[in-house]
Structure formats: C-alpha cells, structure tokens
Amino acid sequence: MNVFRLTGDLSHLAAIIILLLKIWKSRSCAGISGKSQILFAIVFTTRYLDLLTSFISIYNTSMKVIYIGCAYATVYLIYMKFRATYDGNHDSFRVEFLVVPVGGLAVLVNHDFSFLEILWTFSIYLESVAILPQLFMISKTGEAETITTHYLFCLGLYRALYLLNWIWRFYFESFFDMIAIVAGVVQTVLYCDFFYLYITKVLKGKKLSLPA
C-alpha cells in the first residue's frame, strides 16, 4: 500500500458517497445515468467475487463490501425509490455495444483462462468504459449539475491515482499488471476532456455547460 493507492481508494469512495448523498438529499436522480450505475454494479460484482474465496485484509474486505453495497444502493435509488425523477430519455447510450465487445476481449486477453480470472478481467475492461453512458448523457443535455461534476472528478481522479500507484509499484516492487495498466490508461484518458472542463469552468465557480 502506497500513498497513491490509498488516496485513489479514498477518492473512489468519495465519488460513490457524493453520488449517493446527492440523490438522497435532493430526492432526485436527474442528470445521472442509471446505465452507468448498473455497469458499475456489474463491475464490482464480477471483480469482488474473490471475497468468497480469499481473504486479503480487513481494509480490503470492508472496502469491497462498501463499494458493492453503495453501487446497489445507487441503482436501487435510481430505478426504484426515485424512478420518477430518472431521465431515461436522455440516458440512451446502447450499453450492449460496451458489454459484448468487453466480454469477448476478456475471454481472449486475460492472465489465466479460469472463470474467476475472466470475470475479473471483464470487470477491469468494463470499468474503463462504464462512465461513457454518463458522459454521453451530459453531452446530450449539454450540462451537468455542479455536484455531479464533483462526483465525476473524484471518479476520474481515482484511476489516475492508481496509474501513479502502478508506476510506484513498477519501480519499487518490480510489479506490473499489463491488463490493469492498459485499461487504467484508457479509463483515465476518457476523463481528460471532462477534467479540462472541470478545471476551467467548475473550479472557477461556473456551471458546467457545453456549447450548443
């Protein structure tokens, strides 16, 4: 565990909590892509099946349980409790275009051709693109609430910090995992356009709105 790993995990946790609180406090999931949240629930479920087979640490287990629990709670709030506020018309990204190729890639390119390992690989690949329905929704409506942009910033920052963690581990532990690194780079790159808008607009007190 190094400082980048820890801050990455905390940034991820902050993102998840920010989104849950935003929906809970405003009693609304307007502007939030339910499809992205379903994808994240699938990501956590397929990645953390090793909860049942191996124990790493109290930290590891509790973070996994919190991530999975919050992901399902978010999906529940969007599709059940506050479904009247869900903006399904603007959440029109075709997720099968993500899930099917990612599933195929996980079967073809993995560390080990076993059930759990393929599911883990699938979750890594899927996570790298799971935010696309959310970004697509924002580009469609042309705007995002400021609290939603804080959520996205923390979520993007988390993987960027993991990249630094992997560089650290490469130098100090001679460890690297090509699958996680490539997917992590893709994931971080997808946020670059958003990072630019966040820094130039939101941090200067302006609302994030895209030119028509």
């Binding site: 790493i56 996994k64 560390h111 080990d112 963690n165 995992d177 090509m178 699958i179």
Partner: peptide, 10 residues
C-alpha cells in the same frame, strides 16, 4: 510479458 494481477488492489 503479462504479470499476474495484484490481488490486494481494489
């Protein structure tokens, strides 16, 4: 080469 994954990461 592909190194095996880090089981301790989230």
């Amino acid at each position: 080469c592909l190194r095996k994954r880090a089981k301790d990461e989230l």
